[in-house]
């Protein structure tokens, strides 16, 4: 047993962090926010070139041939940097959907009853079958062209400025059946958990940084125990979620993935809220990045596997 990152995994993570810092650092992130552009096609292709989408495709099919543990490290970095776009759906569609692996196509996801994120910019849609989060094959998972679905969809004024949402009337008739093993929902849930983890770790750093710099009553606010204990609680949540997410990536066990999603959702949302509190009035501004983490964390909590569904999976596992 050696439940730590390998040297290769560390290098991979450092590489992605560097790529994202260079290509989607804070200035560009804020510029993208102001411009209101959801998916930057040029960046999308760069992510494709870097292997973001083809990571788990076999090398024989033009992929990188790595596994879920590596994918989780990538998506953790995406979550840290607030990288927008339907990253998970496009990653899952690499292979079956032409152009997805290279970042030429933008693939969004349609999950019955949920608004569709980035429908406006998408080329194709993964349509999830009902599934039960336990890895039972989603027989009806299909791929559809985005344009036809968009015709019958209404844009929603999204709570997250980085994630345009569309309300879709009813999942229309079946599209092309998807030649995958029916693990889309669980894998999507794991990758969303990884993004939540990245966000939770980032808001912890932001809170600690601010608590060390901001002074009141003649002392850094981080010397006050009420603030210090908020920060400690954030770290504990993030680190427990980290172990849950990484282990779930190694075992790919649907019950463990449900646990990882539950804990990572909790860590992302609650850490963003505590981070906001530590920032005081600044935390309530548009200018601060805290709200961007919180809003995205809220959205992700409702995607792929909700808390209620995850808890049922985990309860069912006890009997």
């Amino acid at each position: 047993m050696d439940f730590q990152l390998s040297d290769d995994q560390r290098a991979l993570r450092a590489g992605v962090r560097e790529l994202l810092a260079g290509r989607f650092g804070r200035d560009r992130m804020r510029a993208a926010l102001d411009a209101g552009t959801g998916v930057d096609r040029a960046l999308w292709r760069e992510l494709g070139e870097a292997g973001f989408f083809a990571l788990r495709l076999p090398e024989a099919e033009g992929g990188v041939g790595l596994g879920l543990p590596e994918a989780v490290l990538l998506f953790e970095e995406a979550g840290r940097s607030l990288l927008p776009g339907p990253l998970i759906a496009t990653h899952l569609a690499a292979g079956p959907v032409k152009g997805a692996a290279q970042g030429e196509a933008v693939v969004a996801v349609l999950d019955a009853g949920q608004p569709v994120a980035h429908l406006g910019e998408a080329d194709a849609l993964l349509v999830l079958g009902p599934g039960d989060g336990r890895g039972v094959p989603e027989e009806s998972a299909t791929v559809r062209e985005a344009a036809t679905v968009r015709e019958a969809a209404d844009p929603v004024r999204s709570i997250d400025p980085f994630t345009p949402l569309w309300r879709v009337a009813e999942p229309a008739e079946a599209g092309e059946p998807l030649p995958r093993d029916g693990r889309l929902r669980t894998e999507g849930a794991l990758l969303a958990a990884a993004e939540q983890l990245g966000s939770a770790a980032r808001t912890t750093e932001m809170a600690v940084q601010h608590a060390g710099a901001r002074e009141q009553f003649g002392a850094p606010i981080g010397s006050f125990q009420a603030v210090k204990h908020l920060c400690a609680g954030m770290l504990v949540r993030a680190e427990l979620a980290r172990c849950a997410v990484y282990a779930a990536a190694v075992t790919a066990d649907p019950v463990e993935i449900a646990g990882a999603k539950l804990l990572a959702d909790d860590a992302a949302v609650r850490n963003a809220r505590d981070c906001l509190q530590v920032h005081g009035g600044m935390g309530f501004t548009w200018e601060s990045d805290v709200h961007l983490h919180l809003k995205r964390a809220w959205l992700r909590s409702g995607q792929w596997l909700t808390a209620a569904a995850a808890e049922e999976v985990l309860a069912g596992n006890l009997c």
């Binding site: 172990c243 849950a244 990484y246 282990a247 990882a260 539950l262």
Partner: peptide, 16 residues
């Protein structure tokens, strides 16, 4: 169910 997630994760944290 939530406690199941909690103790599974605590075990993973121990292994970590």
């Amino acid at each position: 169910g939530r406690l199941n997630a909690e103790f599974r994760a605590l075990w993973r944290l121990t292994q970590w």
